[in-house]
Simulated scan of single mutants.
Amino acid sequence: MKTDLQLKHDVEAELEWEPAVTASNVGVEVKDGVVTLAGHLSSLGEKVAAEQAARRVGGVRALVVELEVRLPGQDVRTDEDIAHIARSVLRWTAGLSDGAVQVQVERGHVVLRGAVDWPWQSQTAVRAITQLRGVADVTDRIEVRHTVAPEQISQDILDAMRRHADREARHIQVTVTEGTVRLSGKVHSFAERAVARGAAWAAPGVRAVVDDLTVE
């Protein structure tokens, strides 16, 4: 098991390795395997990239994000401009029907509302808006209409995991409550953990995924 000092070094190294992040703007603190990221970044996309980089590091038990987005002057946009561009981007995004997602903007903070049939459609909308210049934050309030019996969701996820990593599927427990999937158990790598999360998100009827998996 890594010490907190080793984990801090690995997270800092991963941030340096991530080309989308200016690592010098991110402070890293670790206590009992819980990693805290703090600092100021120039875009929401960079903030998301920093979070993803930290999560890739083995030994991270939990992640606390205290990163603030401070847009450089040339990237500042009016709320009206952001709303206009965001609506256009969503209209041109494959997999989203026209008008399925509505946009609200206040001081660069975007709230997405609406209803879609599948969880991946909501994720697609959030990713598309996250990369826009001038966006400081995105809140996802999109509802997923598709409903499936919990036992069917659980079986679909386990079947998908067995197709990708049969060994790990035997050690993963899946529980479903009102469309929220909780994954627990142990896997042998972060790649296998990613397979499990991907399988959960792809299953019909899933509204949220809670990842309690541990990497041995």
Rank of each mutant, 00 (worst) to 15 (best):
A115D: 11
I129V: 13
E106S: 14
M161D: 02
A23W: 10
Q155G: 04
W92M: 10
D159K: 09
V64W: 14
I142S: 04
S189F: 11
Q104C: 09
G59C: 11
Q131F: 02
A202G: 10
Q123T: 04
E80F: 09
G45L: 13
L158Q: 05
V111K: 09
V30N: 02
D212Q: 07
E51C: 07
W17I: 05
H84Y: 03
R61S: 11
P119Y: 14
R207C: 09
G185P: 08
L112W: 04
P204V: 09
Q121H: 14
L158R: 10
K186W: 00
H164F: 11
A169T: 07
E51M: 08
I142P: 02
T214R: 09
D156A: 14
H146Q: 15
D212N: 13
A23P: 08
K2S: 12
A83V: 00
W120Y: 13
T78W: 02
V176K: 01
R61K: 13
E106W: 10
R107M: 11
A38H: 14
R193I: 06
R56T: 06
V110C: 07
T130R: 06
L7Q: 03
G99H: 14
A160F: 05
S88R: 10
V105L: 12
A125C: 09
E14P: 03
L41T: 06
T130M: 05
G179H: 07
V195I: 14
H164L: 14
V138M: 05
V76R: 05
G33V: 05
R207S: 11
V11N: 01
V103N: 02
E68K: 15
A160G: 04
A94D: 15
I153A: 02
Q173T: 11
V195M: 08
V116R: 03
V28D: 07
L15H: 02
S122T: 04
L37E: 00
R162D: 07
R167E: 15
R170W: 07
A49S: 14
E12H: 09
A20G: 07
T124H: 06
V28G: 13
L7C: 04
E68Y: 09
A100D: 14
G185S: 00
A196Y: 01
H188F: 12
I85C: 00
R55D: 08
R170F: 02
T124Q: 11
R56C: 03
V209Q: 00
A165Y: 03
W17G: 04
L213R: 00
D166Y: 07
Q6R: 11
A196P: 06
A13Q: 12
H9P: 01
V135K: 00
T180W: 08
D117I: 05
Q104P: 01
V210Q: 10
I85H: 00
T177P: 01
R107W: 10
G58P: 00
A196I: 04
R70C: 06
T139N: 05
W201Y: 12
L15G: 03
G185D: 03
D211W: 06
V76L: 11
D137N: 11
V34A: 15
D117R: 14
V174G: 02
L7R: 03
A100Q: 13
K8Y: 04
H164V: 13
A208D: 15
K31Y: 13
D98K: 15
K47H: 09
T147Q: 15
R113C: 13
Q102A: 14
G95P: 11
